[in-house]
Design a protein around this nucleic acid. Structure first.
Length: 840
RNA sequence: GCCCCAGUAGCCCAAUCGGCAGAGGCAGCGGACUUAAAAUCCGCUCAGUCAGGGUUCGAAUCCCUGCUGGGGCACCA
């Protein structure tokens, strides 16, 4: 018996299994998964016969079972995947797990186990839940980032980045979470606290690995223009903000010799070179090496005490912008290259070591922070910009807007913009500066002192220094004999304790050497997983470049807005590097992005601490998969939050039963020509199809559900009190309902499709073509307004001429009565819908 | 403090180009069916669009101001 035959027989069996009468979601849910698997409905053909579309949901982290948030996000992605499949695209919709990460490690410590045990057990639980949830996924491409066959390629990519100078190590003060005992990227510090556990972050100087994402700042920013209109505007805004491009100038100031200290140059970054003449002092970041280098011997003690005070502050205190300005004079003077003026050099914590050059020229008259500092230490304030506002020295309010430049020699009389251009010209000619662009973006700190991640494939040799692990020795596997307490955070990586693992011979000189004991940030794993799906078994590289050419970029990416910066920025960075390596053609990984909203309960995010969580499994048991999915989609537009207390899964279940019952009332045979069917119902059907297409393209899924409900209502009416269930239009309508529902309620739709006498799967049905001749109204209601108020309605032909409509409107009794003899000033005609008569 | 988004029936939400404020659902009310109830079916009620001003023949829609809610950034020179 052929495989096809088996499938058909099973489908037939399923069809016969449908009982007349009640809609019962448990039996429907039991009927179809095996059929879908058998048919391979959701495996892309990848043979070029159809246009390819790649739909991707952000892959889950395996912490316990799926929750309501997953249910929402994946329901949305599945609508897109299923819609595109109906439209005839070859859809790739894969799934996998982001399975490295801290929670697994913490669980392992608690249970004296290996993180893999907890991780893979949770993955199996989630996989089963995904299958129950009837997502149209291609399971054959499943991946887990913690599999050696996956992280082998994460390590391979690290080495390619290393070769290109994009991965490097430096000793530097970094964000440190005292609780998780690991470093954090800037992106993982929220309001001075650890994004994950909320512990206030401290600074610690450590030798750490970085990716040089700053090399790509400009492209990351510029290429956003091609995402415009396809990504949520706020995500683009957040990324722009994070990259933080600002135009200005580098200006070199000479620091005069002082005692044993020689003369040297220090560069500042400023966005306002037009105010150079207003500089009255000079400030370097207190925590930068520069401060210690510059300080005159007599002030060294004072600086050191100040630095201790600054270090004692938590990041939260430090970031409080209301704080009094503090600082210490360094006993040195900087020479303003424009006017030769000597400016005292101070160290202060309001200047950030990380931004610009870590040194600024202070222009108190036109910068509020500088002004606050000047006031605190009695430094002079000189206005060089006349903005018409009160003198900042008097008002205490810095004037930073537009104005005319004064007290500034060659810049006098110029506007702000002219002054900036002129000042840059002057310093450039003098060789003391140049126009430049500065970015707020910092390099990505990727090393972590934790166990459950991809080991950094570097060997440290006392002779050869950093030596990359040769490609053919990848993956550098995690040792599998560390468990429980051995994994506990101690400030250095737990891997350091695995001596048999750490001690190796140097690949270059053969001498004794040690492995790098840090692991990579899990965001490295997730920065390229969308490529691995394209050729999950490929062994010649992280992915088959040919497959990437066929499928990239992702046509629709779906996920939460919480990744607006982190994951999405990193993935964009990886894509650009891979393009530079010639491995892919795409500049951007995700052509379109949809952020689904959160699922709330009673106005609040669900959380354990609030005790207001709604259990997904219980919802599925009570209302059925389809009702939960439909509720998610129908509640609001995808990007809006859904408050589970405001919606009605029981209502959804009722509707699905109502739709399903239609199938039992269709008495015509499959394949019946609808053309002789009830005209009114056909009009509703075809209008629904036409509207649904536009609405789906605009992601207004909730409205598509509403339109489907209308069609169900109209069909019910046609059956009960219209032409009856034998009318061919009724079959056409119910078939359309089945196709529409297949995007939101796959089980019910499949059952309905079978009840109509069709072979599975409805997911393979073609998108119905709407017939425009059926959607044309025979008459339309034209509204007649007098002075904007509706005074009459006329039934007219849709193609009525303006003149004819004007005539009709003007002869209306109601209009004459309202006008009451007044003259007419003008008549606006918008045929065929409206006439507005404006009285004199 | 700065920036962005959103405010439409009791509630969730619709409303192409500026053209009848209402598609759908929840809740509520009434009716049919039933010995009764559930389920099902049918029907009904409900706002003038956060407030104020402007543009327009005409504004939920465009502009300005404010209020409320949500989000982002926050000593970034």
């Amino acid at each position: 018996m052929s495989e096809e035959q088996v499938v058909q027989d099973e489908a037939l069996g399923a069809q016969q299994g449908i009982e007349q009468g009640a809609y019962s979601f448990p039996s429907i849910e039991a009927r179809w998964p095996a059929v879908w698997d058998e048919l391979g409905v959701f495996t892309p053909r990848d043979d070029g016969t159809r246009e390819r579309r790649y739909v991707l949901d952000m892959f889950p982290y395996p912490s316990g079972d799926l929750h309501m948030g997953h249910a929402e996000a994946f329901a949305m992605g599945d609508v897109v995947a299923r819609y595109w499949r109906l439209k005839g695209y070859d859809v790739l919709h894969p799934i996998g797990w982001d399975s490295f990460g801290l929670p697994a490690e913490n669980a392992a410590i608690k249970r004296n186990a290996h993180p893999a045990e907890w991780t893979y057990a949770n993955i199996e639980t989630q996989a089963a839940s995904f299958k129950r949830y009837a997502l149209s996924l291609d399971w054959s491409r499943r991946l887990h980032t913690s599999d050696p066959e996956y992280y082998r390629w994460t390590q391979w990519l690290f080495l390619r980045f290393y070769e290109r100078g994009l991965a490097y190590r430096k000793n530097h003060p970094v964000n440190w979470c005292p609780k998780d005992q690991t470093v954090l990227a800037n992106e993982q510090v929220v309001n001075g606290a650890c994004e994950r556990c909320g512990t206030p972050v401290t600074k610690k100087a450590l030798n750490q690995w970085y990716f040089k994402i700053t090399d790509y700042a400009e492209r990351l920013l510029d290429d956003m223009t091609e995402l415009e209109g396809h990504w949520p505007e706020r995500v683009l805004a957040m990324q722009r903000n994070w990259i933080g491009r600002s135009e200005g100038a580098h200006v070199r100031f000479t620091i005069e010799a002082e005692g044993p200290q020689p003369e040297r140059e220090v560069t500042v970054f400023t966005t306002r070179p037009d105010t150079l003449y207003g500089a009255t002092f000079f400030v370097v970041a207190a925590d930068a090496e520069l401060a210690s280098e510059l300080v005159a011997p007599g002030q060294a003690q004072a600086l050191s005490e100040y630095q201790d005070r600054v270090k004692a502050l938590s990041e939260i205190e430090r970031q409080n912008t209301d704080r009094e300005k503090t600082g210490v004079f360094l006993g040195r003077y900087a020479v303003n290259p424009l006017n030769g003026e000597k400016l005292p050099v101070w160290a202060a914590d309001y200047v950030l070591a990380e931004y610009g050059t870590g040194a600024i020229m202070a222009v108190p008259a036109h910068d509020q922070r500088d002004l606050d500092f000047a006031k605190a230490f009695g430094l002079p304030v000189r206005a060089v910009l006349d903005t018409g506002e009160e003198d900042p020295a008097v008002s205490g309010v810095a004037t930073n807007g537009e104005g005319t430049i004064i007290n500034s020699g060659p810049l006098n009389g110029l506007s702000k913009a002219e002054g900036i251009a002129k000042a840059i010209e002057i310093v450039q000619d003098a060789g003391t500066g140049e126009g430049t662009i500065n970015y707020r973006l910092r390099d990505w700190l990727l090393s972590r002192q934790r166990f459950w991640g991809a080991p950094i494939p570097i060997i440290h040799c006392p002779v050869d220094g950093e030596v990359p692990v040769p490609d053919d020795e990848l993956p550098v596997r995690l040792p599998d004999d560390l468990r429980g307490e051995q994994l506990a955070p101690k400030g250095t990586s737990p891997l350091a304790a695995a001596e048999h693992w750490v001690n190796v011979t140097c690949p270059r000189c053969g001498g004794p050497a040690k492995r790098d004991t840090d692991t990579m940030d899990t965001f490295v794993d997730s920065s390229w997983y969308y490529l691995r799906y394209l050729s999950p078994d490929y062994t010649q590289g992280p992915f088959d470049p040919e497959a990437a050419r066929r499928w990239m970029p992702v046509a629709q990416y779906v996920g939460g807005v919480e990744h607006a910066i982190l994951h999405l920025l990193y993935s964009r960075f990886f894509t650009k590097v891979l393009k530079d390596m010639g491995l892919i053609d795409a500049d951007e990984p995700f052509a379109a992005l949809m952020n689904q909203g959160q699922v709330l309960n009673g106005g609040k995010a669900m959380s354990k601490s609030l005790g207001n969580g709604v259990d997904l499994g219980e919802q599925l048991d009570t209302y059925g998969v389809d009702a939960v999915r439909l509720t998610m989609v129908f509640a609001s537009p995808p990007e809006d939050d859904v408050d589970w207390a405001d919606v009605s899964p029981s209502g959804s279940a009722k509707f699905l039963a109502r739709a399903w019952r239609l199938g039992q009332d269709v008495t015509s045979a499959p394949g019946t020509d609808p053309s002789g069917g009830d005209r009114a119902l056909r009009a509703v059907t075809h209008r629904t199809i036409a509207e649904a297409e536009e609405l789906l393209d605009a992601h207004k899924f909730n409205v598509v559900v509403a339109k489907t409900m209308e069609l169900v209502n109209a069909t019910r009416k046609a059956i009960d009190s219209g032409p009856g269930g034998a009318d061919p239009a009724v079959r056409e309508a119910v078939e359309t309902v089945a196709v529409m529902l297949s995007m939101f309620a796959p089980y019910t739709a499949e059952d309905l499709w079978a009840a109509l006498g069709h072979e599975p799967s409805v997911a393979n049905a073609a998108w119905p073509q709407h017939d425009p001749s059926l959607t044309v109204e025979e008459t339309v209601t034209a509204v007649v307004q007098v002075a904007g108020k509706v005074r009459d309605r006329l039934e007219v032909a849709p193609d009525i001429s303006e003149d004819a409509l004007r005539e009709l409107a003007l002869s209306s009794q109601n209009v004459a009565r309202v006008l009451d003899g007044r003259g007419i000033r003008t008549v606006i005609v918008r045929a065929p819908k409206l006439v507005n008569i404006v009285p004199a």
